[in-house]
Design a protein around this nucleic acid. Structure first.
Length: 800
RNA sequence: GCCUGCGUGGCGGAAUUGGUAGACGCGCUGGACUCAAAAUCCAGUGUUAGCGAUAACGUGUCGGUUCGAGUCCGACCGCAGGCACCA
């Protein structure tokens, strides 16, 4: 297309003026189909070629589905709260609101220049008060149903900047801004009881069609494990101390116990612990470490023995020593473990360091080299002696524990409650009020939204509180309960909040009575197809599913899972096969490509570059190849004759292409979709002339990926816009070629090819195969043992 | 360490249920058109040997199943991503 930028603008306006992509909620004449792509974070850097890849893939799907007669909902919006916008604003001395407005403008312009068929009538930003009103409203529902609570939690704290850091900003245990060592500081934070939903989130996966790798990501994150709780007794006081283990079969091998440094029982027992100073010092030491350091693997085990305390192993009734160590986490299980150094690597390391005895209870391995974690015959294990495998031993031990009341079966999840507070300005204010007299009180729902104040200062405070804390006018309010003086919560919600339900809002984006009406949600039902980045498949998806399941349980959404298919796209890497980054200087800007080659070329290339779910490097040379292909399609217009119907010689390849392309698109094989069209275009090019209908078929099949030029060429043929066309269907009977070349093998090696016709029976094919010149050379003088004929595919002759 | 994905020409990648490995595109080589260039078109292009027909080898490595393996099974090596002291 010589004037591609003009043509692209022309059709972009045409689509807008004719509302071609508007989804009408409630249209009963069509089947609804909801296609979603992750709404972007509108950063200052503008749209990335990676965005273009997933948006194009979904746009292709949306355009095909429309032609197939579906009522397609394909919306777009903005996920604009969060730290990057705040930091960008601080750095550039502008209000985050203005920064976001600017960035959205840029992003939207870029998207429109690429011709994506979004329904812009449903556009919103998570930062719009009309939207975050409902995010706040939903938080109140969590609170009212006992799902939100305040708890003391450690946060990453930079003592130099006096600021709370996200895990990303504290990566490597060092403050990103000033380079100081990050420590842990306790802060009261709002929490959502997501761990209550662990089992439902796991089971719910059965009702979805997520890609396997996505499902696995969810399963790993939830981290279900089945084991047992076993009660040990403190010898000196008789207090119960419970551990969690998945290996209760090794109870006879327990030689010590380890508690997390924060374990609450330490305070209770402090009068008995004779080296409490040392214990306190270790607790401080553990706390001074960042989450990063603490979870760093392969580091030396550290810890302190609790002098004056021993616990009784309920099975052996022997006393063992107790230690504290930071390799035991308070957040998982009971914060206490029974240590079996013979059969656990971490316990083994610890035992070696502190000279604790090691008792082998399973045969196998070489304990001078490390713990044996495999299966085997039980030894030194009382009533378990003679058991030959883990499974039976665990079952027997559990039975025994239950019988004697010493323990019980227990399921644990790694999934923890969701820390919902951020000490930031640029987020949804949490609509809670603290009154000295009445405690925490929710705001009245009718007073929502609680707007972010419009102020000049939003830099972080020295105390680690949100910048909102400085705005006394805003903070001071009255208690909704008693009417006395009270203060607002100054923390804001995390970035994940607004993105946990935005797909529901798209179903009914302008509703000012509800976050979305039940009628609208019942009409659209679910997101049929959701694409996004691999980096969001674990957390964003889990948060969104949790949010939806909660809304379902209180009767506000029609389905427990509101997303059916989830697929994650691969990254677009730089030409050097590295992740694109400014510092590497390998960033490709989509605007430059659109300007020089046109949107259709960029779209086609990004679909052609490789497997959609796999990373692929950028190549401007290959991009030019796609431009050449589109130019060739344009030149074919000169070959159009005035004959009616389709050319006879093209019927087979046309039907084959329709089938191939339709199947390819259904399985997201965009690169082979393009290649099939290249083959078709080459077949057209081989002919002297083609008919109008031949040509139009190619244009329609190509339209989803190259919508502008195909619309233009289609118009030149005198047809109505492809927006009103139907997706072509194929005729099974036209797929079979009358004549076909197949290979003939001798002992598995191809020796010749023969032409067969549809009417040939097996004997005829056999004869043709055996008579082929080169086949005879390889069979002469040999015994033919067997001739295998796979009809329409291959002949294999076995000789001796 | 665990989980997941991937290893195919000079390059990006095809091969949907085992059936002509390398579709399609890029690049490269030669040719046509042109005063010349660009664009376009034609031919060739896995490696080795041969003028050629053809032959041998060839999908990370080793082994297996099969008339037939890139595809299935077993062991291993390498790369990428995710989780990570989870008891």
């Amino acid at each position: 297309m010589r004037n591609f930028s003009e043509i692209e603008k022309k059709w972009q306006s045409y689509w807008q003026e004719h509302h071609c992509f508007q989804a009408v909620t409630g249209d009963k004449s069509k089947t609804p189909y909801y296609i979603l792509v992750e709404f972007p974070y509108p950063s200052g850097a503008g749209l990335h070629v990676g965005h273009v890849r997933s948006y194009t893939a979904q746009d292709v799907l949306a355009r095909v589905k429309r032609m197939q007669g579906y009522n397609v909902l394909f919306p777009m919006g903005w996920d604009a709260f969060g730290a990057p916008a705040e930091q960008y604003a601080i750095k550039n001395h502008i209000h985050p609101k203005d920064a976001v407005k600017e960035n959205i403008h840029t992003f939207k312009g870029q998207m429109q220049s690429l011709g994506f068929s979004f329904d812009w009538d449903r556009e919103f930003s998570t930062t719009d008060p009309e939207y975050y009103k409902w995010t706040q409203w939903q938080f109140l529902q969590f609170y009212k149903h006992g799902m939100a609570y305040k708890a003391k939690k450690d946060v990453n704290w930079c003592p130099t900047c006096k600021s709370v850091l996200s895990n990303e900003d504290a990566a490597g245990g060092v403050c990103e801004r000033c380079g100081s060592k990050v420590v842990q500081k306790e802060k009261e934070q709002w929490m959502l009881r997501m761990s209550d939903y662990a089992e439902d989130l796991l089971k719910g996966l059965d009702d979805t069609h997520f890609a396997d790798r996505v499902k696995l990501g969810q399963i790993n994150w939830i981290g279900k494990s089945t084991g047992a709780e076993v009660d040990f007794t403190v010898q000196e006081t008789g207090d119960k101390l419970t551990v969690y283990t998945t290996r209760c079969d090794t109870l006879f091998g327990v030689t010590f116990m380890v508690l997390a440094p924060e374990h609450p029982v330490l305070e209770k027992l402090s009068s008995l612990i004779t080296n409490m100073d040392e214990v306190k010092k270790y607790q401080e030491f553990a706390k001074s470490k960042s989450a990063f350091e603490r979870t760093e693997v392969n580091k030396d085990k550290t810890g302190v023995k609790l002098e004056g305390i021993t616990v009784i192993n309920p099975i052996t009734e022997k006393a063992v020593e107790v230690f504290i160590s930071d390799y035991v986490m308070m957040g998982y299980g009971t914060g206490a473990i029974m240590a079996v150094p013979a059969h656990d690597e971490r316990d083994y390391e610890f035992a070696k360091k502190f000279n604790i005895p090691i008792v082998q209870v399973i045969e196998g391995g070489d304990l001078s080299k490390g713990a044996y974690t495999g299966d085997g015959k039980m030894i030194n294990s009382g009533f378990l002696n003679g058991f030959t495998n883990k499974k039976d031993s665990i079952a027997r031990m559990l039975e025994y524990l239950k019988e004697k009341g010493l323990g019980r079966e227990k399921v644990n999840y790694r999934l923890q409650d969701w820390i919902f507070s951020r000490q930031r300005f640029w987020g949804e204010p949490i609509p809670m009020i603290y009154c000295e007299k009445c405690g925490w009180q929710p705001m009245k729902e009718e007073e929502l939204p609680l707007l972010l104040p419009d102020v000049a200062e939003y830099e972080p405070t020295d105390t680690g509180e949100s910048p909102l804390a400085k705005i006394t006018d805003w903070v001071n309010t009255i208690c909704p309960c008693c009417g006395g003086p009270a203060k607002r919560e100054t923390d804001t919600m995390p970035n994940w909040a607004g993105s946990s339900w935005y797909f529901l809002r798209f179903m009914d984006a302008h509703n000012d009575k509800e976050f979305a009406s039940m009628d609208a949600m019942k009409y659209w039902q679910k997101v049929n197809w959701y694409n996004g980045g691999m980096e969001h498949t674990a957390r964003h998806l889990l948060y969104a599913r949790f949010w939806v399941q909660f809304l379902y349980n209180i009767g506000l959404v029609p389905n427990k899972e509101m997303i059916d298919v989830r697929v994650s796209h691969g990254m677009v890497l730089g030409p050097d096969n590295q992740k694109m980054s400014k510092s590497k200087g390998n960033v490709i800007n989509p605007d430059d490509i659109v300007k020089e080659y046109g949107a259709d070329t960029l779209r086609t290339y990004e679909m052609f570059m490789g497997d959609y779910q796999q990373d692929a490097p950028w190549s401007t040379e290959s991009l030019r190849g796609c431009k050449r292909f589109l130019d060739k399609v344009e030149r074919l217009a000169q070959k159009v004759n005035d004959k009616a119907g389709y050319s006879d010689s093209l019927v087979v390849i046309q039907n084959k292409t329709i089938k191939a392309v339709t199947d390819d698109l259904a399985r997201m094989s965009y690169n082979t979709y393009i290649s099939a069209l290249m083959i078709l275009a080459n077949a057209y090019d081989d002919l002297e002339s083609i008919t109008k209908e031949d040509y139009r078929l190619l244009l329609i099949l190509l339209n989803p990926v190259a919508p502008h030029m195909t619309e233009e060429l289609n118009e030149q043929l005198g047809y109505d816009s492809i927006c009103y066309a139907s997706w072509p269907t194929y005729d099974e009977t036209c797929l079979v070629e009358k004549e076909k070349e197949i290979a003939v093998q001798v002992n598995g090696k191809v020796r010749a090819t023969i032409m067969i016709s549809v009417d040939d029976n097996e004997d005829v094919i056999k004869e043709k195969a055996l008579n082929a010149e080169n086949v005879k050379r390889h069979t002469d003088g040999k015994d033919i043992v067997k001739v295998i004929v796979i009809k329409g595919k291959i002949v294999n002759i076995v000789v001796k």
